[in-house]
Amino acid sequence: MANWLSAKVTQVKWWNDKLFSLVVHADIAPFTAGQYTKLALEVDGERVARAYSFVNPPSSDDLEFYLIKVDDGALSEALANLQPGDEVRIAEQSTGFFTLDEVPSSEQVYMLSTGTAIGPFLSILQQPHIWQKFTHVVLVHCVREQQDLSYQALVKQLQQQYPQLHYVPVVTRENVDGMLSERIPRLIKSGRLFDHVQLSASPDVAQFMICGNPEMVKDTSACLQELGYTRNRRRTPGQITVEQYW
């Protein structure tokens, strides 16, 4: 059973009419970048809880979560109505294995995300460890419309701080100058992703972390396996590490 704590809302940042970030303060146990916790509220007399990844690094006093407001969503609508000063329940202990400790060192790492699943990658990228472990870090964020590319200021700050960061925004339902527009598996299969960042990937130099909707995770994993990459497991290290985001 989770040990629940009270978290005070300090900020609600709306990126557009559906996407928002919730910032809270709570004295939770230490966590590792890439992990997730649970948030909960009383909805119609019942406690409703869902898992959310941290956007902030473990060193931050703020706990930040990147959410999408789902119409008739059991919890997301209630979370979207929160205001600074309100309280939400948060699990004291975090969990999850989508962390750098589980990924073998390599020359390149590709962080492949859709929608709000960019969150755990932003947490990882704000930690010094990743910049010592990989020479090239490629952050791919695939969304439907350009307005869904949140956290642009943070990404630019990271690019200025760490020149080895390659940021690849992908917009699938609009044509935007300078941006790729196909789904991630197709970009990998055609080689366009690697051409775009001017890198040559192969199993002996590249790792892939995949986080997003189940269809993207499944299709991207299958595409990579066709190209000779294997799932990463503790007993048999490979090149593909995945996290289903719902």
Score class of each variant (00 low, 15 high):
57 P>R: 14
59 S>H: 13
54 F>R: 01
77 E>R: 12
47 R>E: 13
60 S>M: 14
40 A>V: 06
72 D>G: 07
78 A>Y: 11
72 D>P: 05
69 K>G: 06
78 A>S: 14
43 V>C: 11
68 I>W: 05
45 G>I: 09
45 G>D: 10
51 A>C: 12
51 A>Y: 12
52 Y>S: 03
71 D>K: 13
57 P>V: 08
46 E>L: 12
40 A>T: 09
41 L>A: 08
42 E>M: 11
79 L>E: 01
55 V>G: 01
56 N>H: 06
41 L>G: 01
58 P>E: 12
34 G>K: 02
39 L>F: 07
39 L>K: 05
37 T>M: 05
39 L>Y: 06
61 D>A: 13
77 E>A: 12
44 D>F: 11
71 D>Q: 11
36 Y>C: 12
75 L>E: 04
70 V>Y: 08
43 V>R: 07
51 A>W: 05
67 L>H: 00
77 E>F: 02
52 Y>A: 00
68 I>E: 15
62 D>G: 02
35 Q>Y: 06
64 E>C: 13
69 K>I: 06
35 Q>G: 05
78 A>R: 11
50 R>D: 09
53 S>A: 08
37 T>P: 04
63 L>E: 01
63 L>D: 00
77 E>C: 12
35 Q>P: 06
56 N>Q: 06
48 V>L: 10
49 A>P: 02
69 K>W: 02
49 A>W: 08
43 V>S: 09
50 R>K: 15
41 L>T: 07
60 S>Y: 08
69 K>F: 05
34 G>V: 09
35 Q>C: 07
66 Y>D: 01
